[in-house]
Structures are given as C-alpha cells and as structure tokens.
C-alpha cells in the first residue's frame, strides 16, 4: 500500500472535507454516541472524511451510500461471499460485518486505492492480462484478497493460493484465471508484495 495521500481518491469534495489525522473515539473520550446520527471520521484510501451516520451503519454501507466509494460490493451482506473485502489497517476484512463507527482511527483501503494514479497495481494488471474476471462484481473483493494474500505469503503453490482465495466467491467461476493472475504477480518478482506494504 502506498502511503496515505490526502485527496488521492478525489472524493473529498463530494463526501466531506480533508482534515488532519484524527484521534480515535476513545482518545477523544467521546463516550457514548448514537443511536441518532453522529459525526465519524473515516480514513479511506488516505483521505479523511467526516461522515454523519448512525452507529448501526456498516462500513460497507458507509463507503457505498455515504462516500460514493462503490468498489466494495454487496453480494450477501452476511459474510458469505467476500465481495465487500477491504483492508482495515492493512488486513483484509469484510466491510459488511464491520461497523463504520468502529473504523474511526483506522486506515480503510478499498480497490479504488490500489492503483497509483493512472498506473494499475500489478495485481490489477495481472487480472486484466489473465481474464481473471467476467461480470466484474466480485473482482474488487478478489483483488483486495489477492494483494493481501501476497503480503501474507500464502502464495507458495496453487493449492495454497486456492485455499486462501476461497473467501471470495466468483459465480462466473474465473477461479483458474484468478490463480494464474496471482502466480504471474508472484513470479514477476514480488513487486506487488512491496507495494502492498504500508
């Protein structure tokens, strides 16, 4: 992951304004918030957004409905498909089972944060090269898992890649091509691994 850059996603103007890195909810001793909407500071792809939301709002809905970050997809909303995979503090997690308010003070990275400007991340390139997608709806989640898998080192062989990619369902069944894309990145010198580190 490249270092956070303010305004990198270009969404700041739409969703809120850019503010300095904030203290956590605990540090600011805000005590109890909600159930009515409250201001929450979310750091998404290096940009801090002030979002007004109820504590029940999931990270997935906050991204999609409030911040217009629609790369993370809603496939099941119950942790059974992986389409909503994002990184929180560099770890791949499911945004549908994460409360947005619990992400205050943490770094959220979505597929929109993978490319460096116009330059695709090597894993994105490898997905294009290997036709590792069809309808594209699971693809953002697959990518966030695939890049994380490189960081985790779970890319020794195809069996290991397949197992550690099994939390991302692809109904088009592009699975063999997804594995091939990951192998391509692995075998091209671990560029993704370096870039994947924050």
């Amino acid at each position: 992951m490249t270092p956070p850059q303010e305004g990198r996603t270009g969404l700041a103007g739409l969703a809120g304004h850019t503010v300095p890195r904030q203290a956590t909810a605990a540090e600011r001793d805000r005590g109890e918030i909600g159930p009515e909407p409250a201001d929450v500071l979310l750091t998404v792809n290096g940009t801090v957004h002030r979002v007004r939301l109820e504590p029940r709002v999931s990270l997935l809905d906050a991204l999609r409905e409030r911040l217009d970050v629609t790369g993370p997809k809603k496939g099941c909303n119950q942790g059974a498909c992986g389409a909503c995979t994002v990184w929180v503090d560099g770890h791949r997690v499911l945004a549908c089972l994460t409360l947005a308010v619990a992400c205050e003070g943490r770094e959220v990275t979505t597929v929109e944060g993978l490319a460096d400007g116009d330059e695709l991340h090597p894993m994105q390139e490898a997905f294009v090269d290997n036709d590792a997608l069809q309808c594209g709806y699971c693809t953002p989640g697959q990518l966030m898992s695939a890049v994380a898998l490189m960081k985790e080192g779970h890319h020794r062989d195809d069996a290991e890649i397949a197992e550690w990619m099994s939390g991302n369902i692809c109904r088009c069944a592009a699975y063999p091509n997804i594995r091939r894309a990951i192998r391509q990145v692995r075998d091209s010198g671990g560029r993704a691994e370096q870039e994947g580190e924050s």
Binding site: V69, T70, G71, P72, T110, V111, E112, L114, A115, L120, Q124, F127, V128, D129, D131, L133, G136, T139, P140, L143
Partner: peptide, 11 residues
C-alpha cells in the same frame, strides 16, 4: 482484453 476490464479492476 475485455473492453471493460479497466473499469472493473479499478472499482
């Protein structure tokens, strides 16, 4: 390559 691949891999 797919005409829409770029849009799909970037979100």
């Amino acid at each position: 390559p797919r005409a829409d691949a770029h849009a799909k891999v970037t979100g």
